[in-house]
Design a protein around this nucleic acid. Structure first.
Length: 555
RNA sequence: GGACCUGUGGCUUAGCCAGGAUAUAGCGUCGGGCUUCUAACCCGAAUGUCGGGGGUUCGAAUCCCUCCAGGUCCGCCA
């Protein structure tokens, strides 16, 4: 509804002024929508902006009212629009329907890759920033109507995995030991690196393993495969706890076995930018890269970048839009990948880069065993959440309390991570992660539960799709923005916008809740407010689910 | 040394790409509000050289230049 109104008003301004851009902007406290077009016309017309604004209002107000029911007026140089009753009632009708905010089905197929952590230790609080950005975008794309496949790209043949395989053999570790596989692998990996640091000559054994696995040696392949699988099983456990699921796990080694890597390397070797001596590398200086892009080692084995090219060519052929979520450490290699694909006429991926999460004592390192695992984070947050639920709802059965605590914990974790823009590097803070108040997931869940509770107590009522008074109108107008927010997230790849929106919607609902009685109001007001509570409830539910957070009905 | 990202009240943070109305919220501080629809809440107050300096513009947190600080990268690792 909001977007439709913007389009209509934009077209009217365009018609009237002849300018391509109607200069629409948020109206802030003054209006629902505003245009700063008077500033840009000032030079041409040689008139003061406030004068121009007044003239524009005079000429378009009537047509705007006719087509949208919005009020047009000027404050100084700003042309302002305030939406009217029809807008509010249309919004309420839409927002009380199941699936509010969903876009119509789009033909464009999207593939999104996220997490893709190396299987050499458990997911830690840095990795899950990737996971949560990726999963939230996934949910937004699906909400917007795009068919989307989520992939996990498994590095099952890199140096790190060779180190794990070597570590298992040299430490005689029991790869089938009980416990969570990813944590088990981390122990082996950390210990193996300790040995390699002490005696670098041991690296020869790692190199040998990498040659064997690339040449297809069956024993080495299974030596790699078993720990990778154990680790991945651990990842899947952790991801499931966070409401995250991948549609497909794509194995890096497949692009060696099916010959795709060889094919792309051969294509590249014929390019004028290719440099072939002992190694194969590519000169990307035309794209502004100083460093050449190395694709094959002198011992003939391929590097990660080569396999990644093959993977992305495959994705580009099977999907219309390719999106990767990558840590800031991949910026160079990621942009080199984009440039190379562009050079050979393939579709480069869109990449969302996110900056690092570090610990107060410094950056995390799986290799050095310096990290807080996602499992620890979840366990601790659940423990705190259970304490909280037990204090608040002692009458509930333990099973029920545990269930709520889990949903609250995941909500707190996911929200804490997604609310910050990806470009900001953050320091992990237990106090913030365990905060269930205000700018948190549980705060939004609570607003939803509160709305549910009111509606449950109300029983049946006659819906009334109207809003009256400041608080009601502000709330409806916020509800109206939900579809716009989803579409912004998808076009700009900025999932934090949804997090902020959901919190602001909860804020407005809480203010409304405290200011206006619902159940105790006289009948026609009660019906109207119950309809509004229901619209809010539904919008909060859709927003929470799109954030990957359970919309609890009680907490 | 070079490249990219970040720097907004004591702390955390939105706005920056597409410049425009008194810069967004939270935590913390101070003052209020639960026999009344779930207080994981609400209402109010105080707190700002938008890292520093230049420039462009009628107008800059936003664009350009420069400097400073933090992070990341610059491997025949991934």
């Amino acid at each position: 509804m909001y977007l439709t109104f913007c389009d209509t008003i934009g077209a009217i301004i365009r018609d009237h002024t002849g300018k391509d851009d109607p200069m629409l902007t948020d109206g802030g406290d003054h209006a629902d929508l505003a245009s700063t077009i008077a500033f840009s016309l000032a030079k041409d017309l040689k008139k003061a902006p406030p004068l121009i604004a007044a003239e524009i209002v005079n000429s378009i107000a009537e047509r705007v009212m006719q087509e949208t029911g919005a009020n047009t007026f000027a404050i100084g140089p700003y042309v302002n629009f305030v939406f009217g009753e029809k807008y509010c009632s249309d919004v309420l009708i839409q927002a009380t329907c199941d699936g509010y905010g969903s876009g119509k089905e789009k033909p464009e197929r999207v593939v999104l890759e996220h997490t893709s952590a190396n299987p050499n230790g458990p997911l830690h609080v840095g990795h899950i920033r990737n996971t949560i950005i990726g999963d939230t975008l996934t949910r937004c794309f699906r909400k917007a109507g795009y068919p989307l496949e989520v992939q996990y790209y498994v590095n099952d043949m890199g140096r790190q995995i060779a180190i794990v395989a070597w570590g298992i053999a040299s430490q005689r570790a029991d790869i089938y030991a009980e416990g969570k596989g990813d944590h088990l692998i981390a122990e082996v990996y950390i210990e193996a690196n300790r040995h390699l640091d002490v005696d670098p000559s041991l690296n020869a054994a790692i190199d040998r393993l990498m040659q064997l696995v690339e040449s297809g040696d069956p024993d080495t392949i299974s030596q790699f495969k078993i720990p990778v699988k154990r680790c991945l099983d651990g990842f899947k456990d952790t991801l499931e706890k966070m409401n995250v699921k991948h549609d497909r796990f794509v194995y890096e080694s497949d692009f060696i076995r099916n010959g795709d890597t060889e094919k792309v390397l051969s294509r590249i070797s014929h390019l004028p930018q290719a440099c072939i001596d002992e190694i194969l590398s590519l000169d990307l200086s035309q794209y502004g890269f100083e460093k050449s892009y190395i694709l094959r080692r002198s011992d003939g084995t391929s590097v990660y970048a080569a396999r990644d090219l093959a993977f992305h060519i495959w994705k580009g052929h099977n999907f219309d839009r390719v999106i990767d979520i990558l840590g800031a450490d991949h910026k160079l290699i990621g942009t080199q990948l984009q440039a190379t694909l562009d050079l050979i006429g393939e579709k480069p991926p869109e990449i969302v880069f996110f900056e690092f999460v570090s610990l107060p004592e410094g950056s995390m390192s799986t290799r050095k065993g310096k990290f807080i695992s996602a499992d620890e984070l979840i366990a601790e947050t659940e423990r705190r959440a259970l304490e909280e639920v037990t204090v608040r709802r002692p009458e509930l059965h333990e099973e029920q309390r545990v269930k709520i605590a889990h949903a609250v914990a995941i909500s707190a974790i996911r929200y804490d991570i997604i609310r910050t823009i990806p470009e900001k590097n953050t320091i992990f803070d237990w106090k913030e992660a365990l905060d269930f108040e205000k700018q948190s997931g549980p705060y939004i869940q609570y607003a939803h539960a509160r709305a549910c509770s009111i509606l449950e107590k109300a029983g049946t009522y006659t819906p009334c799709f109207k809003a009256e008074g400041e608080g009601e109108i502000a709330l409806v107008k916020k509800i109206a923005l939900f579809p716009k927010v989803i579409s912004e997230v998808v076009t700009e790849l900025k999932p934090h916008l949804l997090a902020i929106y959901a919190r602001e919607l909860a804020d407005l609902f809480n203010s409304f809740y405290h200011a206006e009685p619902v159940l105790r109001a006289e009948e026609h007001v009660r019906n109207r407010r119950l309809t509004l509570v229901n619209a809010t409830r539904n919008t909060l539910k859709e927003a929470l689910e799109t954030l990957g957070i359970d919309a609890l009905r009680a907490m």
